[in-house]
Simulated scan of single mutants.
Amino acid sequence: MKKITVLPSWCFRDDAGNQLDLQLLRLLGAVHRRGKLTQAAEDVGISYRHAWSVLRQGNAFFGVALVELQRGRGAQLTPLGDKLLWAEQRAVARLGPQLESLGSELNLAIAREQQGAVSVLRLYASHGFAVELLPKHLTALPLDLQYCSPHESLAALDRGSCDVAGFHLPRGAVGEHIRASYHERLNPREHRVIGFITRTQGLMVAPNNPLGIEGVASLALEGVRFVNRQASSGTRSLLDGLLNEAGVASTAIRGFEVEEFTHSAVAAYVAAGMADVGFGVQAGAEKFGLDFIALATEDYLLACRHQALKESRLQAFLDVLGSDAFQQAVQTLPGYRLSRCGEVMTVEEVLAP
């Protein structure tokens, strides 16, 4: 079955209707990575002459140069070229989950038109790098994947809107308050918990940590600019717990009210120089070339109704979680580890103090 992937695309157009070559951003990204226009053109798959043409068109469109070429020093982005590149990175990181969810809905609609009634696994979970892998491995089972917060996911499970719901449980004392909140959502008689992964969360900072940030107490230092996750996210709940444990008031943190909706979007924000530090997973930091300060480990778990475990679609899902292919893919993610992946546990077993 063919599947649709929805990708964001930029369009630079002025009031007169003039439009730029869509290869401009790809070329800027390649210049940033390679430092030479010849190698950048090769990466993009265009000739050196065409690369020059794309850059000249971009320079004329914006009225300033986007790439600085120096003999013997290669090529580097100008401040505007850098801004354009990081704006694209942030847009992709921010819109990615919504577009994945839209693609999931479209693929489900296509499957139903092609095959009629189909067995679908409805998974509601917060966005993460391990969850991103699931559609690639659940090839034989149509997946309706919707990204939302842990409490929204569990609420959807409670009302029957999904089959599997993702939630996070930090290890250590900071997780106790969060653990208590899940007692209200998970019924030991009705629900079961499926093991998935553990992941490391912490602070994302610029390479070589120029401000010498050491932990959450550093977020309140004068001049430090922070970028946050949205209030409903599990990552935000973890950060709030760490701040409370350290006695750091959120009002003392510059930028605490600035929110992004994915780990990648936070990392892109820091990598673009718009903030000095963000909070998220190690995989997000490494994706954007940032240094990472580990602060906490959390279990990412999956909940379902115990009756659903008798259904073939849930069994197929458990088979994928336990497969060598999926588990090997998870182990390539920085800061991620398998944790009883695909094993079914009782609520008491997971939420016991």
Rank of each mutant, 00 (worst) to 15 (best):
L221T: 01
A246V: 01
A246E: 07
W86E: 00
E132D: 15
Q115S: 12
P79A: 07
A75P: 09
E259D: 11
V164Y: 04
A40F: 10
K2E: 15
L338A: 08
V164G: 06
H168A: 04
V344N: 04
L102M: 12
Q282Y: 00
A30P: 10
L80Y: 12
V120A: 09
P210A: 09
R305D: 13
S237H: 12
V118R: 00
L290G: 07
V350K: 01
G175K: 12
L333F: 09
G322T: 03
A252S: 15
L24A: 05
E343V: 06
D14N: 15
A325W: 00
V227R: 04
Q57E: 15
S53R: 15
V205W: 03
E88W: 10
A206M: 12
I194P: 09
G74A: 11
G17C: 05
F167H: 01
T262P: 10
H306T: 14
P170R: 08
R34E: 15
L22S: 15
F256G: 03
T200Q: 13
N244I: 01
P207E: 08
A329V: 04
V54F: 09
G278Y: 01
G81M: 06
L203E: 07
K2M: 10
T262H: 08
G63R: 10
R26Y: 11
V31K: 00
L295S: 04
L238V: 14
H191M: 07
E260Q: 15
L7R: 15
V344S: 01
Q146C: 12
A40Y: 08
G45W: 08
S119P: 01
S232G: 07
A125W: 01
A40H: 10
Q146A: 09
D14G: 05
R225Y: 02
V344Y: 03
A246K: 07
T346E: 13
Q328H: 09
I4T: 13
S250H: 03
R225H: 08
Y48N: 12
E184Q: 15
Y336P: 01
V258G: 02
H306F: 02
L238W: 04
D158E: 15
V54P: 04
V131Y: 00
A75N: 11
V216P: 09
G335T: 02
A206R: 14
Y147G: 04
F12L: 11
R225C: 05
E152C: 03
E184H: 14
A40K: 07
L121M: 08
Q331K: 11
T38L: 06
V350F: 00
S126T: 05
N187L: 11
Q23D: 12
V248M: 07
A296S: 15
M1H: 13
E349G: 10
G342Y: 04
G234C: 04
E260I: 00
D82Y: 13
A109S: 03
F317H: 10
R229K: 12
D144P: 00
A271H: 08
L69A: 13
P97G: 00
